[in-house]
């Protein structure tokens, strides 16, 4: 499957991927509203996180592992592997907010929703025509979506 691969050598730490993710997952699809209104009101947050360590930084999100620890740990069946697409899919309705997945995913790819007992996890922007928003937005092509 096509995954998103971050290149730490050329990640410039601008956090624009996070803004793109936020906008792509917003109701308004408008960066300004997403960032200034929806973030506060509905706890909209980015699935992508830029990690910084000295001069190096890298934008990480769910790897959509072949054998995901999060799926093994999820007590509600909210996290499952989609056999067709290979994505690790999240069903918000099923989730009970037990944070088992957050504990189990060794890649730090799961975050708590800021307002609700739900998680925030990358969905590869599966319904976005142009593919993952972060990849499209990265000004330095430090994120690539490809088959490897």
């Amino acid at each position: 499957m096509k995954r998103v691969y971050p290149n730490k050598d050329f990640c410039i730490g601008c956090h624009i991927c996070e803004l793109a993710c936020l906008t792509a997952h917003s109701k308004s699809k408008d960066l300004i509203l997403a960032y200034t209104v929806e973030r506060g009101e509905s706890g909209l947050s980015s699935c992508k996180h830029v990690h910084e360590g000295g001069p190096t930084c890298v934008a990480l999100s769910c790897r959509h592992c072949d054998e995901p620890s999060c799926v093994a740990a999820c007590i509600s069946g909210a996290l499952q592997k989609d056999p067709e697409t290979g994505r690790t899919v999240y069903d918000r309705e099923k989730c009970v907010g037990c944070w088992s997945c957050l504990m189990a995913c060794p890649f730090g790819a799961i975050a708590r929703h800021p307002l609700e007992a739900k998680i925030v996890k990358c969905d590869l922007c599966h319904d976005r025509p142009g593919g993952p928003a972060c990849v499209a937005a990265c000004p330095n092509k430090a994120l690539k979506q490809e088959e490897r």
């Binding site: 691969y5 730490k8 360590g53 790897r63 592992c65 072949d66 490897r148």
Partner: peptide
């Protein structure tokens, strides 16, 4: 706190940005 940059370089690359042939994991 924990940070990916504390990971051994090899594990980091293999995990996040593997050579095309080694990606499945």
């Amino acid at each position: 706190g924990p940070e990916v940059f504390l990971w051994p370089a090899e594990l980091f690359d293999e995990t996040w940005n593997p050579e095309p042939a080694k990606a499945a994991r």
